[in-house]
């Protein structure tokens, strides 16, 4: 069978011919589009390493069949930095040591970007921990992750206020 889908991935329009309906968004990105930044951890929706944004919302790409995404806008870790400038969440993770081995980091960062856009956690560490609970870190860098999300939230909110003024 042949399924053709059209996606916008990090702002680039792509036509993708799928020969198999079983292909997840995660496997499409990593295996067929040479975008290995999104990581495969559990492949069961439990660890969050595969988190990407679809139409601006964070989801587990391992549980999303690519064939269901015709017309969607996908943002991955490769699409966050603008030229040489890191996204504020990326910069905050570096600054606060929000990782050790780094394997879960792309998923953590994409989840944090999604959480900040949801706007429900603010800079309350308790709400950030709850909001980030879908992302596991086996190095247990949770303290730095929480601080990074808190700091990035404050910076992005301040920048948004400046833009509005």
């Amino acid at each position: 069978m042949s399924l053709s889908i059209h996606l916008s991935i990090n702002g680039t329009e792509r036509d993708v011919a799928l020969d198999d309906p079983r292909v997840t968004l995660l496997d499409l990105l990593r295996e067929r589009l040479a975008m290995p930044g999104t990581k495969k951890g559990c492949d069961r929706g439990q660890c969050g390493a595969c988190t990407v944004l679809v139409d601006g919302r964070r989801i587990n790409s391992c549980l999303t069949l690519a064939a269901t995404l015709d017309g969607a806008q996908v943002t991955t870790i490769e699409g966050l930095a603008q030229g040489g400038d890191l996204h504020p969440v990326q910069a905050a993770f570096v600054e606060h040591d929000g990782f050790q081995c780094g394997y879960c980091t792309p998923g953590q960062i994409m989840s944090a970007v999604g959480l900040i856009a949801e706007g429900s956690a603010g800079d309350d560490p308790e709400r950030i921990r709850e909001g980030m609970s879908g992302n596991l870190c086996r190095c247990a860098a949770y303290h730095g992750i929480t601080q990074a999300v808190q700091d990035a939230t404050r910076r992005m909110n301040a920048a948004a206020r400046e833009d509005a003024a």
Binding site: G45, G48, T51, R57, R58, I59, N60, L63, T64, S111, G114, L115, E118, G131, M132, S133, G134, N135
Partner: peptide, 9 residues
Amino acid sequence: GASGQLRNA
């Protein structure tokens, strides 16, 4: 229930 990612889907 579940996680932020799963609740979005």
